[in-house]
């Protein structure tokens, strides 16, 4: 029997963006407040899982045509690249650097290379978790 999912799907279309924006906020706030790459990645995964619950696997794959194994790979490369970029400047492995920049909209902002490493963690968490859920949830 086919059930009527209008309420669930309409709510998902609204709530997905709230969760996704909050995950982005958690990711960027990680340096000064609780949060960071891991929690942000898990929240993004939660938003995507909500999409998977409300729609089916094929629709979500059409809407997000990424291969999430490759997303994991990009995340690992980003983390390794940030860690080994310090070797170029003749400082120990994993040495981070930061400086204050004046950005057009944000004013004076302190940009830190630890954020790039965090972005790597974020991509690895999202890629690995979605890969696990998609391979468990699939029929074959």
């Amino acid at each position: 029997m086919k059930t009527n999912d209008v309420i669930l799907q309409t709510t998902t279309k609204v709530v997905f963006f709230i969760i996704f924006l909050f995950s982005i906020h958690i990711f960027f706030a990680g340096h000064y407040t609780p949060g960071g790459g891991f929690v942000g990645g898990l929240l993004t995964t939660g938003a995507l899982v909500l999409l998977l619950l409300a729609f089916d696997l094929k629709t979500v794959k059409q809407a997000l045509p990424f291969n999430f194994t490759i997303v994991t790979g990009i995340g690992l490369l980003l983390a390794l690249g940030t860690a080994s970029a310090s070797l170029v400047f003749n400082v120990p492995f994993f040495t981070h650097a930061f400086d204050d920049f004046t950005l057009p909209l944000f004013g004076v902002t302190s940009l830190h290379t630890a954020m790039l490493f965090d972005a790597g963690v974020y991509l690895v968490v999202v890629g690995a978790a979605i890969t696990i859920i998609q391979s468990i949830g699939g029929d074959a």
Binding site: I7, L8, T11, V14, V15, I18, F22
Partner: peptide, 20 residues
């Protein structure tokens, strides 16, 4: 802002959970 977001979020999702 997070608390305002949480209020809006709960107000949307909690009845949907009961319905489902």
């Amino acid at each position: 802002i997070q608390l305002l977001l949480a209020i809006a979020f709960l107000f949307i999702t909690s009845p949907i959970g009961g319905h489902l």
